[in-house]
Amino acid sequence: MAWAVLLLGLWLWGRDIADGTGASSAPTTGDIAAVGRPLGVPLPPPHDPITGVAPRRIEIPSIGVAAPVVVRGLDTDGAIESPPFDQPRTVGWYGDGTEPGAKGPALFVGHVDTETRPAVFYGLSATRPGAKIQVIRVDGSVAEFTVDDVQVITRERFDADKAYGSRGRGRAELRLITCGGTYDRSSHSYDANVVVSAYLTGEKSGTRAGS
């Protein structure tokens, strides 16, 4: 995941992620290969952006994710810090970027595995358009998102703007990022990344404060 996170850090330096140019959410082929939006899958209309609030927990019921969120910044190389390796079931949120619910993409990263077992985003590539994501925020409110795009992006022609830029102008969005593709034992790295895009479709006020 490190190479994509580094590119993400460099990209964040060069543009405002909340006002990025829109990238197509339609399935693509080749170096950026969509896992796919099945034809005819209805997606709900976007909800207007709401007041951004820092996340505390993220839940993706369709793949069994229910994980705490920790704030991450940029390291000395300008890359977003991954979650600590001793916390493989934790998701990292780029705290200097967009807060979930506000306009623009809020960025989350998580490990796919460790040397011995699956990690928090092990099943991320199995996510499908239409799946629901709930972000429980520190004030107890819940921002509800719907997945509209899943891509496996290879290293050779990684396009940070397509991966992290807004998919719909004026929307509140999420990006969930982890490793994907083939694991290279010699370099101890994967040759691609899974990037899941979702957009705000609902909100609940303070209903999960005790979660």
Rank of each mutant, 00 (worst) to 15 (best):
D75P: 07
G104K: 05
E99T: 11
E81K: 11
P100G: 04
A102M: 08
G97N: 05
T98E: 00
F108T: 07
G78D: 08
D75F: 01
I80H: 03
V70I: 15
G73C: 10
A79V: 06
F108P: 07
R89E: 12
V71L: 13
T76Q: 14
G101Y: 10
A102Q: 12
Q87R: 13
Q87I: 00
G97C: 01
D96G: 07
G92M: 12
D77M: 12
A79C: 09
F108M: 07
I80C: 09
E81H: 00
E99H: 14
I80G: 10
G73A: 13
V71M: 07
V91C: 12
P88D: 00
A67F: 03
W93G: 02
L74R: 08
I80N: 06
S82Y: 06
P100I: 10
E81F: 03
F108I: 13
L74N: 00
G97H: 04
R72N: 01
P105S: 03
T90W: 00
G92D: 03
V91D: 01
E81P: 07
T98R: 02
D75R: 06
W93E: 01
F108H: 07
D75E: 03
V71S: 15
G97L: 01
V91M: 04
D77N: 10
V69G: 03
R89V: 10
S82T: 13
W93I: 02
L74F: 00
P68I: 11
Q87F: 06
V71G: 10
A102G: 12
G73N: 11
G78R: 10
R89F: 12
G73H: 14
V91F: 08
T76E: 14
T90K: 06
P88L: 11
D96R: 14
W93N: 02
L74W: 01
D77A: 14
G97I: 06
W93T: 09
D75Q: 01
G92I: 15
D96S: 15
P68G: 14
D77F: 07
A106S: 15
P83D: 02
T98L: 00
P100W: 08
P68M: 09
E99P: 05
A106Q: 06
Q87M: 11
T98H: 01
D75N: 14
A106L: 09
F85L: 07
E81L: 09
D96I: 03
A67C: 04
E99R: 15
E81R: 13
V69F: 02
R72I: 09
S82G: 09
A106Y: 04
E81N: 10
G92V: 12
T90R: 02
T98V: 15
E81G: 08
P84F: 07
F85N: 09
T98W: 01
P88T: 08
P100Q: 04
D75G: 08
V70G: 05
A67Q: 05
P105H: 05
W93Q: 00
W93R: 02
T98Q: 02
G92E: 04
P83W: 02
A79T: 06
G78V: 10
G73I: 08
P83C: 00
G95S: 13
Y94A: 12
